[in-house]
Design a protein around this nucleic acid. Structure first.
Lengths: 230, 230
DNA sequence: CGCGGCTTTGATGTTCATCAAGTAAAGTGG
DNA sequence: CCACTTTACTTGATGAACATCAAAGCCGCG
């Protein structure tokens, strides 16, 4: 974790229009006085499940995974980029985090004292509505993604995840996989070996180029096919 | 669907303390003027995904399933009893329902114009906080249940569901299964045949008594074992 | 430079879906 | 109320999909 930088002007924050549209200027100043920014290098744990919830936070830049540390195995719940909240599942309600969050890429998060958020909900109806919207959107995405993974077989799931990174995360057919093969499996409930096997198969079939973490999708339409019918 | 009954006094509603604690009496009257009650017999569809969202609603009595009508197969997202919201996933945000809801048992729901709810969020901070709490609790439950199903193999999943009905829904070792074997499978991603096979196995092993939909759990500790390690 | 974690491939066996076929139950129309 | 149709349930047989085990190479890091 890198030392906190103190930027106390949200006026030009990328996320302001998204999140604080309905907040009065003086309230925004209130937030700014209580906000902090933290940066984490890839691989580092940002939140450990069980920790007390003191802050509401969202991702300013980078990529993180939200996951459950189980006794049997770890399970990835969501892979979230900027504009996705990561502490969303129950920050307002719970006393402790239910899930862990780790940085998949170097990430910067913005923290706001949870009491400030609660106060804002109380005083600003517009903010409350906006927050509810964001919370439900985020949860919806988790449920939806899960349903889509559930209905596919392994080949379909691998294709789905590859297209997820290609289209939703990086917007390119060429990208670096931010997760290990093991994490890949933890995301779609499949053994590490089979993730590798199917990736290798796709390489042999000239659908992908793979050099370690580097991926190039040569035939996205083939992956679409797999994702749609597999 | 049975004709709406117009009960316009929430004062003694079971759900009032749960939901309307933070609402002023005059606001509560406002809600009452805009609320309706509807009853559905078991088996009937309450909400069809795609329909426009006009009302916020929760379950007063009965049991329902929240499910996704897919092209490949139906998937049950949640089985909800009273005190669980069912239109929760994104009522505030979306224009149309994303998922369908059916009555598993005769059910009564209470409907409130969504605009009234939104207005309440705006004017009452306490209500807003309370609503957020309920929404996140409900979503949390979906995510948590899903993780627990995901980490188990078929035998463990069947045991998990049996214990779910026994403990969380009916509070008894003897109960009528409210879902078909097919729905059982749609809840835990398994073929109907295998649901039956494992149930039959449990019957042969004297862990269960089964007569059609009637279930008696003879050895819950055995199911715990299966659920914990399977 | 050696250790541990990540990756890869092959071999093996289990788990699970699918197919097929038959029975029971429940709803439908005459 | 009974024949008829449909839907739910059940069992067995088969093969495909998938996890697990084993072994070896690779890479990064202290």
């Amino acid at each position: 974790m890198i030392e906190p930088t103190s930027i106390c002007d949200c006026t030009f924050c990328d996320l302001k229009p998204l999140f604080f549209d309905h907040v009065e200027d003086r309230e925004l100043r209130d937030i700014c006085q209580n906000k902090r920014e933290l940066s984490y290098p890839a691989g580092e744990v940002i939140i450990r499940q069980g920790e007390e919830i003191r802050d509401f936070f969202y991702l300013k830049s980078g990529l993180v995974k939200l996951y459950n540390r189980g006794t049997r195995k770890d399970q990835i719940i969501k892979i979230a980029g900027p504009f996705d909240f990561v502490s969303m599942i129950s920050v307002i309600t719970d006393k402790n985090f239910r899930y862990s969050v780790s940085a998949l890429e170097d990430s910067t998060i913005c923290l706001i004292d949870i009491r400030v958020i609660k106060k804002l909900v109380r005083v600003s109806g517009g903010f409350a509505l906006h927050l509810i919207e964001k919370l439900t959107d985020s949860n919806n995405d988790i449920v939806r993604t899960n349903l889509e993974i559930r209905e596919r077989n392994l080949r379909g799931r691998v294709a789905y995840v590859l297209l997820f990174f290609s289209r939703k995360v990086y917007g390119s057919n060429v990208f670096e996989m931010p997760i290990t093969r093991k994490e890949f499996g933890e995301f779609i409930d499949m053994s590490t070996e089979n993730v590798i096997r199917i990736l290798s198969e796709l390489r042999k079939d000239k659908v992908l180029k793979i050099f370690g973490k580097s991926i190039e999708i040569l035939h996205p339409e083939h992956l679409d096919q797999l994702s749609a019918h597999g």
